[in-house]
Structures are given as C-alpha cells and as structure tokens.
Nucleic acid binder design. Sequence first.
RNA 1: CGGGGUGUGGCGCAGUUGGUAGCGCGCUACGUUCGGGACGUAGAGGCCGCAAGUUCGAGUCUUGUCACCCCGACCA
Length: 491
Amino acid sequence: MAKNFTTRAENYSQWYNDIVKKADLAENSAVRGCMVIKPYGYAIWEKMHDALDKMFKDTGHVNAYFPLFIPKSFLSREADHVEGFAKECAVITHYRLKNSPDGSGVVVDPEAKLEEELIVRPTSETIIWSTYKNWIQSYRDLPLLCNQWANVVRWEMRTRLFLRTAEFLWQEGHTAHATEQEAREETARMLNVYADFAENYMAMPVIRGVKSPNERFAGAIDTYCIEAMMQDGKALQAGTSHFLGQNFAKAFDVQFLNKSNNLEYVWATSWGVSTRLIGALIMTHSDDNGLVLPPKLAPIQVVIIPIYKNDEQKAAISEKVQVLMEQLKAKGISVKYDDDDSQRSGWKFNEYEMKGVPVRVAIGPRDLESNQAEVARRDTLEKCSCSFDGLAETIEKLLDEIQANLFRRSQEFRDANIRRADTWDEFLSILDEKSGFVYAHWDGTTETEEKIKELAKATIRCIPFDNPLEEGKCILTGRPSKQRVLFARAY
RNA sequence: CGGGGUGUGGCGCAGUUGGUAGCGCGCUACGUUCGGGACGUAGAGGCCGCAAGUUCGAGUCUUGUCACCCCGACCA
C-alpha cells in the first residue's frame, strides 16, 4: 500500500502539505503567496460558511458588502490601526496600462497615477466606519449589526496554504452600539458563537480568553480569542472578537443623538474567522492516511462503493444502493455513489480515505447474498458488516458517533498536553520536549512577554476566561503574579 | 531583508570526465483482471527556467538574470 505519505512523526509540515495536496484541497498559485482553493477544499469552506452564516443571522446580524479598496487616508485615521497593518498592505497607485514604447508588451501608464493611493483591504474597519457615519444619526439606528463575507489581502513574508496566505477568504462582522455594555456583550456573544462552531461543527476544542495587550488587534481595546491545539502541540488562533470601544467612532466621527438629545460616540465591535479554519481542521483530526473530516463539515458524508466483476453484478448492487441512497437523502445525509468503472474498488477506498469522507459503505456480491454491507468509519478505520435492514439508521447514528468521537479524541489529546511550569527551566523543557500549552505565571508587563517570546519562541495565547487567581512568581523575572496565563508556540 | 537549496515531459526525479535526453507515476489504445492504490503489450508527450559566453559540440563548464521552496524576522 504505497501512499507516498509523509507521516506526522517524520515531518509535521510536510505531512500537512501532503494532506492539502492529496486530499485535493488547494495549491499554490502563480501569484506569490496566493492560494488556489480547489473545488473540494471550497466545498468545505461552503459548509463552514453556511453554518456560520446561520449562526450570525440567528444572533440578529445581516450581511452587506463594502468596497475592496480603501483610500489611504481612511486607513491612517486610527493611529494604532494603521501602525498594525501598514507593513503588509498592497497599494494601488495607477489605474491604467498602455502599450510599451518598445513594443514588448504593456507598461503602467505614468499619466494614470492616482491622486490618492488605494489600499487593498487588509480588514475593513476603516471603510465600514466611514460608511457607518452616514448610516447612524439616532439611537434608533442602533444597534447596527452587519457582517460581510469577503476576501482580504495581507502581504505576508512567508505563507502556508490555508494558515497564512497573501489573500484569504473570511467573514468580518462590524457592529455599532449605543452603550459600552451592549458592545461588550456583543463581543462576548460572537466569541461564543465561534467557540460553539469550533466545538460543535469542527469538533475542535478551544480555549476562550482575552489577548494580552501585546497581541491585541490594532485599534482594539480588548481582543477576545479562541485558541486551539494542533496535533504537534502548537497553538492556532481560530477566531477573534474585538471590543473596539469608541476608537473608530472617534476616528470617523460617528455620533448619535441619545434619548436625552445628547450627542454620543457609538461603541464598536468587530469579529472574524477565515479560511484558516480549514487548516485548523486538517491539523486537528487528520492522520497518516489523509484528511479526516467531522461529519458536520464533510461535503460528502457517506460514499458507497460497489464491488463487482461484471455488469450483471453491478446492476444488482446499484438497484440495492438506490434504495439506501433515498433513505439517506431523506435524512439529509449527503451521499455519493461511486460506480465509476474506470477505477477499481481498492483505488477508491484509498481515494476517499485521503479525502476524509467519514463513512464508507462497500457492497459486493457476498453482501448481496447475506443482505449486508461493509461499513467503515474514517475516524477509527474500523470496519464492520451491517445488516441492510435499518442501514440508513445505523449510518445516521454512526455519523453522530464519529462527530462526537472526533471531539472527544481531540479534547483528550489537548488536555493531556496542557501543563504547568513553575520555573524557567521547566517552562523551556516542556516546550522543547513535550510541546503543547503551558500555564505559567507572568508579571503582566509587555517587556517580559516580548523577552519570553524572544527566548522561548512562545507567546501568551490568552488569559482564559474564569482563570483562577493564584499568587505566584513570574516564570522569567520572578516578580509577583496573580494568575497563570496560557503560553504556547503558535502558528 | 539575511542563511541554505532547487529549476529537465502533467507530477516526482536521474543524467558520470561536455558528444545531442532517460526512469517512475500519470495519460491514450487493446486485452486479462476487479473484497484495500492490478498487470501485460503497444503508444503519445521535452528549445533541459531565461540570456550571454567558452567550445567543433553545452542539460553538463563560466557569468548574469528570473522564478520557486526551506530556515529566520513579520503575521489570522
């Protein structure tokens, strides 16, 4: 069974790249740092999109769309914001090409220089708040709860498929509220939506918390996040929700008249998740045989593979399969019957295994005789013969069981890899030898945080909500600390 | 922007002291197969990243150039 698969243990990065390639999810494009998301990869994103979009709407949000281009002056209105993004912006300076004088193609027409450069959005706070100014006059216009599905561009130095690309797809919610409390509640609500999605759809356990000032979103008062642990023990920020205070309202002069006829600045939030979640999905569940998808996000939940030697057998199997297909579809289960003659059954087994299809049903002449089917589950690779009677129900239950098992399994892995360190040596040896998350005391200063990052290559992932208070000494400086914070090396 | 590496059929690679390009996978046709990536036979497919130079002759040597990958700095 030659799969030419790099194993997780051999080289985790290579293994990751192999999965992306062999499961046919994405590839690098001709454009530096940009990614082509292939149909199968995009189908997973669509599943994520649909589930999240419903959750947003259930929490009162609506979708809208704002321009791709942001005038340079908009970006610089909020000082922290522009500072945070300036280093990775794509800038548009001209709007026209012309034939090159020497006839060798086209050149940028110097006559067509823009008076003001346009920035390809790295995030949309500025363009949206410049628009919100016109939408908000009265407390009756609030809250304003918009989301947009869009692409953004951040010119990263080094890129990795899904995890960090120059252009990526995401959703960004931008809300405006009359009071600080309401905005803070919104920030928390949306973080919980993300955590709910991560755990119940992606089957990926996450830790909710608040970022240290150093890791905060540029322009935010507070950044909340969900942090997940990948199978190599590294952390991945899976979603963020920002409380922006009145920073953007002040920068873009967005005020409203309250019930007492007084002008007030509005309170803002923004929150987002990206195609990076697909990378998270890969690194949370997949194994050395390929991708493993949780049933709730699998474009194909069940694949049925016929095993036959001639058309007669195939016809008999197909007839039986049609009934099963109808039953599965009636239950809302997505099912594919692969009766392609050009590939053999063994090839198909491997193909769908690499693609992470949760359940495979194989039916051959032997099964027809015994009124059974071979049912294999992707998460444990176990196979069993199941009676054809009630098979649709059996599969429906199995999908639930796989979803639950994936969550349980990744939660057990994560919990087994969260440790405490009380000394610097202990801290380093955990990171170097065991990897995973480390709870350790920190003196609360940015200076120390940066020093730790420099020395250990680990960052504070978050200060978890409901973090127990505990007297201790900073792992690096020995200064007093009131609580442990969560450290890890991160993607 | 530093440090290392690679450019040769669609993909992955080999190519010796310079002599006019080969292997595996894939692809096409036919046949035998078909319960975990089948096999046989016959085919198709290449300005050897680009440019200049050395030479009777360059995939191979020299110089330049471009692109991509990996390790850092930057980041969701």
